[in-house]
Simulated assay, not measured.
Amino acid sequence: MAGILDTVNQRTQLVGQNRLELLMFRLGSKQRFGINVFKVREVLQCPPLTALPKRKTSIRGVAHIRGQTLSVIDLRQAMGGRPTEDVSNCFVIITEYNRSVQGFLVHSVDRIVNCNWENIQPPPKGAGRFSYLTAVTEVDGEMVELLDVEKILDEISPANATTSPDTLAGTENLQTNRILLVADDSSVARGQIKRALAPLGIPMELVKDGREGLEYLRDIASQCERSITEKVCLLISDVEMPEMDGYTLTAEVKADPKMKDLQVILHTSLSGVFNQAMVTRVGANKFIAKFNPDELANAVKECLMIEAG
């Protein structure tokens, strides 16, 4: 299984081309799920787990892997399913989300597939497990579900979305009637951003993907005489989103004469050097890893101060 990720570092050229690669896996049924390869550190046979007292039931225990102790989450149970019975024949996908490393217990791992974000669609509306999805796509004639990992992690250990008083000091001078646009496919992430930035007193519009964000901006730009900055002060965009990723959204914004002056903050659970390089490549003004409310609010303050001269 180790060989399945050997060439991950060679795949970074897909980033910024509205493409991604998914590592597909199963949770004990025929249904296949997918996770972005860039969030995966390693895949290995489930190691011995040490149970913790007073733990969330979906945390099966902790594992000691390469000198690091990390929690192993039973992904099926975290989504409301029954606990995985025999973990000895299962796999652990070690991932990095929102500045933390954790393992996800899965029944089996399939393979890596190359996808285009345009072919990844928002999930169908409904109850049950669909509430844990951010997107779906089709591979080999079958639906593959992309999980809202941020929601799963937030249910296990809720993130702090409260901005500190020190960060808010002096923000009354930055208040504006112009709109701050947020594009993120995770409902949990949108809620966190809204709670963190609401004290700044800036009106916000929230959309669920890059395509919707671009359409919104183009509509606003058509109403502006010279620049969209007359009505929109800032764009905060996730990177991973169905239909259009954040890099492509940023590139489209910067290529439009009426939108090129709009400042863009890329705010994502992805991490790594390749993201920093892409900030420059697509013209984004900042890149921030999720989720720190003070860091995000300070970035917004800095962008508005720069714009104001």
Rank of each mutant, 00 (worst) to 15 (best):
V144H: 13
E145H: 15
L146W: 06
L147K: 08
L147F: 12
D148T: 00
V149E: 08
E150L: 04
K151E: 13
I152P: 04
L153H: 01
I156Y: 01
P158S: 08
A159L: 11
N160V: 10
N160Y: 04
N160E: 11
A161P: 03
T162E: 15
S164G: 10
P165S: 11
P165W: 12
L168W: 14
A169T: 14
A169Q: 15
A169M: 15
G170N: 14
E172C: 10
E172K: 15
E172D: 15
N173A: 15
L174C: 12
L174M: 15
T176A: 10
T176W: 13
R178N: 07
R178H: 08
L181H: 04
A183T: 13
D185P: 05
S187M: 12
S187K: 14
R190P: 02
G191E: 07
I193C: 04
R195L: 13
A198Q: 15
A198F: 14
I202M: 12
P203L: 11
P203E: 11
P203Y: 13
P203A: 10
M204N: 11
E205I: 12
V207C: 09
K208T: 13
K208A: 13
K208G: 02
D209Y: 06
D209V: 01
R211K: 14
R211G: 05
E212A: 11
E212C: 03
E212N: 09
Y216R: 11
Y216C: 00
R218A: 02
D219T: 12
A221F: 02
A221T: 02
S222P: 00
Q223V: 00
Q223F: 03
E225M: 09
S227V: 01
I228K: 04
E230V: 00
V232F: 02
C233I: 02
C233L: 09
C233A: 10
L234I: 01
L235S: 08
L235W: 06
D238P: 07
V239P: 03
P242D: 03
M244A: 03
D245W: 04
D245K: 02
D245G: 01
D245P: 01
G246V: 09
T248A: 09
L249H: 09
T250G: 06
T250L: 10
T250C: 14
V253M: 09
V253S: 06
A255N: 15
P257M: 07
P257F: 06
K258Y: 05
K258A: 07
M259S: 06
M259K: 05
